[in-house]
Amino acid sequence: MPELSLDDLKKKATQIRELIIRITTEAGSGHPSSSLSATEVVTALYFGGFMKYDPKNPSSPDRDRFILSKGHACPVLYSAMAEAGYFTTDDIMTLRKLGSPWEGHPNMRRLPGIEASTGSLGQGLSIGIGHALAGKMDGRNYQTYVMLGDGEMGEGQVWEAIAAAEKYALNNLTAIIDRNGYQQTGATKEVLDLTEFQPKIEAFGWHVQTINGNDMGEVVAALKTARGVNDKPTCIVSKTQKGYPVVPLLEAEGDPNYHGKPFSPELAKKALELIG
């Protein structure tokens, strides 16, 4: 489990963003903007000393878990795992191609290190509860992190899971909501306005923080704070920008949401220049 300095974490996040853009543009499909918003959090988890894992032994029972419930953002996960050594950066250039295990949404049966097959929104937090309960039963000291999308919070199952996690006092479970403000057809506040998450989830008995999720320092601090909570499940509402930090380029294309659209080679070139 590498523990990079803040500066190195920022550099790692940039490398991961470059990969996200390259692999989705190569694939000609995918969800780069949904991946870019979540990059600081995923980078911090894998490289900030928060998750213990061994790419050579991905099913070690004591490993920490990361479940990407917003499975369409898997380019950020594949890119982070490639940087972590689960597979190579060449491997993930096969993203979404026939025969490639780097599928359009995560498939745990084809890729060791993927904790859950996701893509049907709403299920990851419940799966995470299963991991957290098993950890308690077995006396294992691992943490289960689940990343959800803010649009995904419209799924009723998420709220079933929030209630259940409190019932079982799952202090070994951390939910991170990538609050990027957009879902498939528009702004989340217009499609289904769930207003502020923090008071709702606090009302269910969780420890909740709201942060700027594109600020690596805030992400690291929030993950540290969450790790110190011992009596209840923890949640980080990670306010981000979908497509960060290339939002101006997406706005210039006339679509700041850019949901489920790869960057054209020209746009990718501009984006790589901007972040590099």
């Binding site: 029972p61 859950a116 299920q123 419940s126 509860i129 098993a134 199952q157 899971a161 259940a164």
Partner: peptide
């Protein structure tokens, strides 16, 4: 819904 997915997580842990 939660019931079934929780079971999936438990099964993934043996």
């Amino acid at each position: 819904s939660n019931m079934v997915s929780v079971a999936g997580g438990l099964a993934a842990c043996g």
